[in-house]
Nucleic acid binder design. Structure first.
Lengths: 208, 208
DNA sequence: CGCGATACTGGACTCGTGGTACATTTTGCG
DNA sequence: CGCAAAATGTACCACGAGTCCAGTATCGCG
């Protein structure tokens, strides 16, 4: 019934989060006014405070929603890739290619990473929110490290790298690639960096 | 006479820029108030507007100062590295190691990249400022691509990569690494990502 | 010595907007 | 109906950007 891309209008709360996400990624959290959000979805200021007790609650909800969505995406891509291949290395290489394609297919390029945005404004948030961002990155490290370890068990690394670092590298390149793409106004740069990462992984485990 | 790290108090304008840089990297540009800056350096509001005609002028000056400083750093490291080695590949590998060490040696970790910060708040700035950020990244692409081309002329690449992408990768990893370090509160993550990049460059041109 | 820049101080005032509180009302639904 | 969910309206305060202007301290310099 409730599709992810619903035809009918989404609940107000979700509309608020969507408007907020776009605004925060374009102007930062502090410069995102509650007024503009309520204008965008057509409710009153009091209506906003019915859904979020204050602006900090919006910040947290925004972050949770973003992390959740990313995890769903990673799960999905990972699932599809492992279906296609028994071999852990081959499967991971397929996964990375899929990831690059997903990034490539976003109409105006990746809109931005909430974690990166928050990171550069972290004094605006409480420790709770900061902890959530750190945990999200930690989760991705574990996710990718697990895959890398399964690969390393079959393909002994030809290059001496720490698997934690190699797992973190995908997060770093994603965030860095998004920044490159946004600043240089070229959506291709992000997927290209992902493909470079793929080439590196290949070199580490395959030696070419 | 005028040293970069002067013992005497820096000119007010520079003090303002320093205070602004720290605040902007911690809270974002919009949340950085003129009031807090003048409190920090101990001048009046009128004093601020004597130095900067408005807040936008501060934003631009901050960016220019940052880009300038980074370029000086890159020039310096590059110069020292090329002095140590005739071979372009070896020289570049030395340079990357030095870069990682510089990042390692920053007391509380890298404070953050103004370009990344501005990128996530770009609607706050005019086209002029956005152009400056794009040009800075473009400059770094050219800088590193030139080095990579000189390497490729001697060491034919063993892995098929686009040199523009490989040049961009250092910017992406730097920005991504800074985010990793800040979010996870581990200053080591940035230099480690730089060293991973180094390993990749080595693999591309040396095959291991 | 005194002229004129440079580098500010002080104060008063406008304007817009963010954030909050609270009392009240509409809407949907069993 | 009757109750809860989902709002509305209104009033209020604090604060930050920006403007204007009149005044002052400190220089270097002819």
């Amino acid at each position: 019934m409730t599709e992810t891309t619903s035809r009918k209008t989404a609940p107000i709360r979700v509309q608020l989060l969507e408007a907020a996400e776009a605004a925060v990624l374009a102007k930062g959290f502090n410069a995102t006014s509650i007024d503009e959000l309520i204008m965008a979805v057509g409710i009153s200021k009091s209506g906003f405070f019915y859904h979020f007790k204050d602006k900090a609650a919006l910040a947290r909800a925004l972050l949770e929603r973003y992390v959740e969505a990313e995890n769903v995406l990673f799960d999905e891509v990972s699932r599809r890739a492992t279906e296609l291949s028994e071999d852990p290395l081959h499967g991971f290489l397929v996964e990375l290619k899929m990831l690059a394609e997903v990034m490539q297919d976003i109409p105006n390029g990746h809109p931005g990473c909430i974690i990166a945005s928050y990171c550069y404004q972290d004094r605006l948030f409480d420790d709770d929110v900061r902890q959530l961002t750190a945990n999200a990155l930690l989760g991705w490290r574990h996710r990718f490290k697990a895959r890398l370890e399964r690969i390393a068990a079959v393909y002994p690394p030809r290059i001496d790298v720490d698997l934690d670092d190699l797992a973190d590298m995908i997060s770093a390149l994603a965030d860095g690639g998004i920044i490159l793409s946004k600043v240089m106004r070229n959506p291709d740069l992000l997927p290209r960096q992902i493909m470079l990462y793929r080439a590196f992984v290949r070199a580490v485990f395959l030696g070419n």
